[in-house]
Design a binder for these strands. Structure first.
Length: 267
DNA sequence: ATGGCTAACAACGTTAGA
């Protein structure tokens, strides 16, 4: 038995609902975690998911931008959401999945992008991003490490050299600056999280999940970044079966700039 | 080195993405 979990920054779930349903029909994950749904909860296209069997839905949305949702074919034991940095800007939701003995907690995150200037003194969006990560580090520490847990989402940081098309050229670019990559590493260490994507793909191999809309030819220039992540705690390490990055989705009609990442776990 | 694109909305420019 396999538990299949997909994560995808969809960049408007209403605009791209047909892409989402095509993806679900083709890949049939048990659970799909979406980021940047860009709608209020009342406007979430709930029926389209229910029609395909994803009737268990937890949505943390707001009008216009950000927003996350986790939809599933199987019921949740529990669910919740958390506001970070004293805001309720719809960047997190979690669900609890029944498992063999101890239930699995599944976090779905949309970390702030951080704006253009990588200096918290002059750019409050970057300061917010760093504060958000600090809060993640404190909150996800300790207890989680010994429990089965999964953390997915758009973390808006490409931590390793080969998570970007050019390490040197992106060292000063928000998403790959040392202050961000060091802080993300601290979040990971604090919770004992394992990078499930790099568990399967060697660190010296390029691995991207996002390609800018601004490229003339995204596939030819291939100036991507790995901004989307799947982490698991040690109790799930031995149950990791594989990771798939659906690169082809970037070439679909009117695509998101992010592609789905699919994780398979022995159930 | 720069510019390049896409989406939402009490919308036709602004804010946000990264």
């Amino acid at each position: 038995m396999t538990l299949t979990i997909a994560t995808w920054n969809i960049n408007s779930v209403r605009l791209r609902i047909d892409l989402v349903t095509a993806f679900l029909e083709a890949h049939k994950p048990d659970i799909l975690c979406l980021q940047e749904i860009k709608c209020a909860e009342a406007n979430f296209p709930s029926a389209a998911f229910t029609r395909l069997g994803y009737k268990h839905q937890v949505v943390h949305g707001q009008k216009g931008y950000h927003g996350v949702a986790t939809v599933s074919r199987h019921p949740f034991v529990d669910a919740g959401r958390r506001g970070f940095c004293g805001k309720d800007d719809a960047r997190h939701v979690h669900v609890v999945l029944p498992d063999r003995d101890v239930p699995i907690t599944l976090h779905n995150f949309y970390v702030p992008a951080g704006g253009d200037e990588p200096d918290p003194a002059v750019n409050e969006k970057f300061a917010h991003k760093l504060a958000f990560l600090e809060e993640m580090k404190s909150w996800l520490t300790g207890a989680e490490t010994n429990r089965p847990a999964i953390l997915v989402g758009d973390l808006n940081i490409a931590p390793l050299e080969h998570d970007v098309w050019s390490h040197k050229q992106l060292l000063d670019v928000v998403s790959h600056t040392p202050v961000e990559t060091n802080l993300l590493d601290a979040v990971q260490q604090a919770g004992g999280w394992i990078d499930a994507m790099r568990h399967f793909v060697p660190a010296d191999e390029k691995l991207f999940t996002w390609w800018s809309y601004r490229a003339q030819d995204w596939a030819a220039s291939n100036r991507g970044r790995r901004l989307d992540h799947v982490w698991v705690t040690p109790p799930l390490r031995g149950r990791l079966l594989g990771i798939e990055v659906l690169r082809e989705a970037r070439g679909w009609a009117r695509p998101s700039d992010h592609v789905p990442v699919i994780a398979r776990i022995a159930a």
